[in-house]
Structure formats: C-alpha cells, structure tokens
Write a protein that binds this DNA or RNA. Structure first.
Length: 281
DNA sequence: TTAGGGTTACAG
DNA sequence: CTGTAACCCTAA
C-alpha cells in the first residue's frame, strides 16, 4: 500500500517483467545491461531489481517465502494472546485443485528457460496461481497472463478460444462464469490442441564451459520468440477451426496457419541445433 | 553477483 | 500503531 521512497513506476515494472521473461529470473545484471531496459531501469541497481521482483512475487502470489518469515517474526514479537484459532472447522467447500503444477520451490513464473510455455500451461498456471475458490473468470486469467508474460493485440480472443477449446476437451470445467481445473486431469502434459504438438525437445547436454554466455542468451531469446510464434500459430489454427464451422472456404486459411506453425517449430529447432555449433571464442 | 534476512520510510 | 514497499547488509 505504501508509496514510500523512490517508488517504482509501472514502466519500470514492465521492463523488469519483460527482462525476466527474456533472460530468466536471477540475471538481474544482464537485464539491467540490456539496452532495451537500461533506459527505464537506469536509476535502478541489480539489487533493486531483485528486491522489486521479490515484492512483485509476494504480492502476486500472496505467499512468498518472505511473508512466512515476516509472520513468524511477528508471532515471536507479539507473543501475547496466542489463543490460536486456526479456523475451528473450515466448513468452506474444500478447495480442490491443489496447486500441483507449482512445485518449483520458488514457484513463480515459469521462465522460458527450457520448456516452451504453451498457452495451455499458461492458462492452467493462471488458474492455479489465482487460487480462486470458485474458479477464475476470463478477465482474471487474461490479466494474469498479460501481466506475467506478453500482450498481443489479439490476446484476449486467443485466450477465449483456448478456454473454449479446453472446456470442450474436458480439461477445464466451466462453472457459471468461472473456469476451474478439471479434477481428474493431470494437465501437465505438453499437449497442444490440434495436430500441433509442442516439441519438448530439451537435450541440454552441453557443458557450461562450452557455451558462451552470449550464445545462451541469444538462444533463449530466440526460443522465447519462437514460443510466441507457436502460440500465435495456435490462435490462427483455433480461429480457423471456428471459421470452418461457419464457412468452408477457410480451408486455405487453416492450411496457412498450419504451415506457419510448422515454420515456427522449424525455427525453434534450428535455434536449438545452431547452439550446438556455436562455440566461438 | 545474487539470495535472503533485516531495516527504514511512508500510508492507512 | 501496523502493514507494506523500498532500501541496506552480508553470506555464499
């Protein structure tokens, strides 16, 4: 709630988030030196970035490792009246959908370090992290993903189409106006609707000493770009699918979308392959 | 250089 | 006074 010292502007926050998405959590100095963000973050240090990210994580999540420590501290400080009443008997409808997807320890956003963040997983992550007892609505899900990842002009439509698809495929349950994760559905597969399949390709056997930092960074950036291309290809295909029901002339469009998706995948593969060759001095 | 504990400054 | 966000200090 506070707006104390040198408050962070939304611009700075955005830059930070973008930087994390691009370089991954931790690389604060890398993010800071990135010409793309150095302008906005020129007044911040790497430590500031780290701290800010921590704060963002805590507030966005509701329960970071910091809040626990805080509460523990408070408890020992105000030991008085510790009647302790951990919710006598929570009659609240038991919240199912245990956040199984979040077991990263630091949980947090899934940075495109190795895996490709498909829209499916993004949506699941949004619902899981939002922890809405009665499910999350479209708006909340959209905002979540928008805030933590990227924003495309047709993003809203994208999510809507995807949500619809997931609901009809039984992965999500639509209750009234909210979406919940299907009880008996381990979502964590890498499946993507339609014929397109995410290549979990991950062979990362390279020894650290063999890769130049610069190359790794470039690779990750390219992978992120490719992932977005794939996501957009998904949208195109979904929209094509819907269009097919109304107009049969959409076949060409669907084919184009498919071709685009394949092109994106090839780009990804090329990137991964090229990194094996890049071992300059 | 980064992660985390701790402290300060400000809002409610 | 309490909670929170920015800032500080230090071990690894």
């Amino acid at each position: 709630m506070g707006a104390p010292k040198l408050k962070w502007t939304s611009e700075e926050e955005s830059a930070l988030k973008a930087g994390v998405v691009k370089h991954g959590t931790g690389k604060w100095l890398t993010i800071l030196k990135d010409p793309e963000f150095s302008g906005v973050l020129s007044l911040r240090s790497n430590v500031d970035l780290k701290d800010k990210w921590r704060n963002i994580s805590v507030t966005a999540n509701g329960w970071g490792s910091r809040e626990k420590a805080r509460l523990a501290l408070k408890r020992s400080q105000q030991i008085p009246s510790q009647e302790d009443n951990p919710m006598a008997s929570c009659k609240d409808e038991i919240v199912d959908a245990e956040p199984r997807a979040i077991s990263n320890g630091t949980l947090q956003i899934t940075v495109p370090k190795r895996s490709i963040p498909s829209l499916d997983n993004l949506i699941l992550e949004a619902i899981t992290n939002l922890k809405e007892r009665s499910g999350s609505n479209k708006t909340a899900i959209t905002i979540y993903i928008k805030d933590h990842y990227w924003a495309s002009p047709n993003f809203k439509r994208l999510v809507f189409a995807k949500l619809k698809d997931l609901t009809s495929s039984g992965k999500l349950i639509k209750v009234k106006r909210n979406y919940r994760i299907a009880p008996s559905s381990s979502f964590s597969d890498g499946r993507i609707s339609g014929p397109l399949k995410v290549v979990k390709d991950d062979p990362k056997p390279l020894t650290k000493s063999q890769i130049k930092m610069r190359n790794v960074t470039a690779q990750e950036a390219a992978a992120a770009a490719a992932a977005q291309a794939v996501a957009e290809a998904e949208v195109a295909m979904l929209e094509a699918e819907e269009a097919t029901r109304e107009a049969e002339a959409a076949e060409a469009y669907a084919e184009a979308a498919h071709a685009f998706a394949e092109a994106a995948m090839m780009t990804l593969k090329r990137v991964n392959a090229s990194k094996l060759q890049m071992v300059p001095g």
